[in-house]
Amino acid sequence: MDFKELLKNVLTEQFPGGKLQFSEFTDELTVTVSRDIYVEFCAFLKTDERLAFVLLEDLTAIDWATRKSRFTVVAHVFSIANSSRLKVKAPVDDKDFSIDTVTTVWQTANWHEREVFDMYGIIFKNHPDLRRMYMPEEFAYHPLRKEFPLMGIPGSLPLPKKS
């Protein structure tokens, strides 16, 4: 059986009740999960022997700007045993922009989540060390949000004086 079919079957079997939505673009499979089972779902992906998505390649977020649920967290996971990739998407809570962390599943999520926090201001609950990744701690904005201008906000970052 094709691995994608197997993947769909295993996942719908494990998480019944329409909690998962599959979509496909070109040959890439995306699964959207609801926020409450996000961490559980990721843990299953990693620990299940048939799937074995052991490598978290990337974790990022998308700012949809005008949509109702504004931010979506996207994780790209890779199964070395099956040479197969999967996108996992989860919507972020609109009230306080928060979602659970997957650092407990993959350690590498630590820095990825810090980066997302820095760039989008999404708070990852239970993250061990949530602080800014790139920008200085004093910086008050989140640059990759759509309302942030490309050239930044004048005066938001200090420069040393030219004596």
């Binding site: 052991v54 490598l55 978290l56 390649e57 070395i80 993959w106 350690q107 590498t108």
Partner: peptide, 9 residues
């Protein structure tokens, strides 16, 4: 195992 867990490539 740790290397994969840390996402090394």
């Amino acid at each position: 195992q740790d290397a994969i867990d840390f996402g090394l490539t």
